[in-house]
Design a binder for these strands. Structure first.
Lengths: 218, 218
DNA sequence: AAGGCTTCGTTAGAAGCTATCACGCAGCTG
DNA sequence: CAGCTGCGTGATAGCTTCTAACGAAGCCTT
């Protein structure tokens, strides 16, 4: 039942195995960060560690398996970042700031979660669990500052489709705000990270800030 | 100086060549649409046409070359769609509708333009020209219905960085609106196309409509 | 109309990748 | 300390992109 990150109470073999698995992920990360996911090569990772190609298959069943693990880690990293921000009393704006910082830290990691989907690929179940944790944090922060107002058309639609909120007591206006928060910030962020604004002259950070302002003061 | 799409005044060789190039792109498109860009294989395309692998290199210098051509076509297709909508008197909402329809028609084509960037890759120059044409249409539509109002913070920032508007006479408020239009709709659309809303129960179209409404009535 | 030149498609091959297998060796474990 | 478990290796199959050399077909000019 060991082998889930805790370094205590492991046999030497398990310790070694965990260490090698971690180093493999680290090297894979570097490759992805510099050349993108399609350039990730198990062979190159192995050679960069002084190993021969097939050796990696002792640690990951396939290239897809390794990638899945990286997706899992990316989700966990984002959730931890947002959780840390929320723990220090950050409101929606604070979460937005944390999100942007996390994304700029490693754009390819962001795209590993929110980028172009591969038609065949299905994310593992636990990532959707983490995703709903992230959503829960967003809902908390949204509910904390949702003002009075007439119910929106989409809000009434959400009233009948709020299963995804997983029993969260937030009013539908907060659900709507959380979704807009997500989609708008992703809109600015993904286009910025993709370099779609390069050469346009303006500062993407200010566009992000403007979108955030518009989101918080309706 | 021939060979740019017009079928008239071509030697038989040029005709044949253009035809084969078109069929290659068509097959490549099918592969991308069903299995994504990483699954695009020149070999498979060749075999599906009854050719042997290396034959394709008479028509495209490399796999990247073919992909670049597809990116070009995707840009041109989007621009044509928006232009057609604008020609029938569509306002910003009409453009949004056209954009969404075009994206849903072939999600991978959308991601080919706005999806995860490959760190090494640089889009050819003419695509940025088409991109600025698209931007010009957006600016036209934005300027057509920009109401009075106090200048936004980001608007004043744009006043000093409006080179990308390419001499368009729209006020900075219209520039701001066009950018928000772009980023917000891309935010909803890309997440929807990526399947990030699947299992959440609500209707992405209604979220799109809500974002559009919010965009048009400030 | 006939020769010559251009272009096309082929096979063969190099280099790279994922992934599997069989083997030997080292080290943990009882 | 003996034995078993797990690790790393090289060999191999099959896939990929892409280059090179060769033969054949067709267009163009004379």
């Amino acid at each position: 039942m060991a082998g889930h990150g805790e370094t205590g109470a492991m046999t030497p073999r398990e310790r070694y195995r965990a260490q090698v698995r971690a180093e493999i992920k680290e090297r894979a990360w570097e490759q992805i960060a510099t050349a993108g996911v399609p350039a990730l090569s198990l062979n190159a990772v192995a050679k960069s560690m002084g190993l021969s190609g097939p050796a990696l298959y002792r640690y990951y069943a396939s290239r897809d398996d390794l990638l899945t693990e990286l997706v899992r880690d990316a989700y966990a990293s984002l959730a931890a970042t947002l959780r840390a921000a929320a723990a220090t009393g950050a409101d929606l704006a604070g979460l937005a700031h944390a999100l942007r910082g996390w994304a700029l830290e490693d754009p390819q990691r962001y795209f590993l979660i929110y980028g172009t989907p591969v038609p065949g690929y299905h994310a593992p179940d636990d990532t959707t669990r983490i995703a709903s944790q992230i959503m829960a944090m967003l809902l908390d922060a949204s509910a904390a500052l949702v003002p009075e107002g007439p119910p929106t058309l989409f809000g009434t639609h959400l009233d009948e489709h709020r299963d995804w909120a997983d029993g969260h007591p937030a009013p539908s206006a907060a659900l709507h705000r959380a979704l807009s928060f997500w989609t708008r910030l992703h809109g600015v962020l993904s286009l910025e990270l993709a370099g779609q604004f390069t050469g346009m002259g303006f500062d993407p950070a200010q566009l992000f800030a403007a979108e955030l302002r518009d989101l918080l003061t309706p």
